[in-house]
């Protein structure tokens, strides 16, 4: 248990959460036909997840490449962008991610070990599960506060990272044959977006600071 790598644990939890969140956003915002989604249970709530192999593989590859950045605390934001037929962003779901500082990582690491060794790991995991569930529930109902998107939309996942971290992304490219490029300005910025704060969450081991939806 002392060998437990805190960064990896956080990255695992966040990537699993982002996977569920991306599937749910694509379902709720009707980017794909509802027929490819199946009801599953995650974080003890029903969610809709795609059962289309090609789409699932794409989402998995995206998260696989992102994981090393999250592990090293190099991913500042993960943004799910919904684009219209002309590839202009019409909606963005912004996940601002921050991990505790190195010092607090160490402290929390001890806490985690303490929880695992002396208490029940169930209480810690159930706390994180509760927080992530709240995010998922917010996404499930976000269409109530968002306008309908035009037909024929697509999506993209953007990662805001520090310049120096781009090298590790290049490393992953070689392994996964899933190259990443710098996003075009027009894919990133929206003119006068309407910002809708959906949820903020903090816990000792995972921090997803803010979930924002922005629409044109």
């Amino acid at each position: 248990r002392q060998d437990l790598n805190f960064g990896q644990v956080v990255a695992d939890i966040l990537c699993e959460f982002l996977e569920v969140a991306i599937h749910l956003i694509l379902y709720v915002r009707e980017v794909y036909p509802s027929g490819i989604f199946q009801k599953r249970k995650k974080y003890n709530v029903p969610v809709q997840m795609s059962c289309h192999p090609e789409l699932n593989q794409y989402i998995q590859d995206t998260l696989h490449c992102m994981k090393p950045l999250i592990e090293k605390n190099d991913a500042e934001k993960v943004v799910v962008v919904i684009m219209d037929k002309e590839h202009r962003p019409v909606e963005r779901f912004v996940f601002e991610i921050s991990q505790p500082t190195l010092l607090s990582i160490r402290c929390v690491h001890v806490d985690v070990c303490f929880c695992f060794c002396c208490c029940s790991s169930d209480s810690l995991l159930s706390h994180v599960e509760q927080l992530l569930r709240a995010f998922i529930l917010k996404i499930s109902v976000c269409d109530a506060v968002l306008n309908n998107n035009p037909p024929g939309c697509s999506f993209s996942v953007l990662v805001h990272t520090r310049e120096a971290a781009t090298r590790s992304m290049e490393k992953v490219q070689v392994i996964k044959d899933f190259p990443w490029i710098v996003a075009d300005e027009q894919e990133v910025h929206m003119k006068e977006p309407r910002l809708i704060p959906l949820k903020t969450m903090t816990s000792d081991i995972v921090k997803v600071r803010k979930l924002l939806a922005a629409e044109r």
Partner: peptide
């Protein structure tokens, strides 16, 4: 300095709605 923010995205695009509809029809 290495501190500037880069915004990265996968080079490949996800399958489009139409592509997915076609595969559903094939099935």
């Amino acid at each position: 300095t290495g501190s500037a923010t880069h915004i990265l995205k996968p080079l490949m695009s996800p399958p489009t709605r139409d592509e997915i509809l076609c595969t559903l029809l094939d099935l």
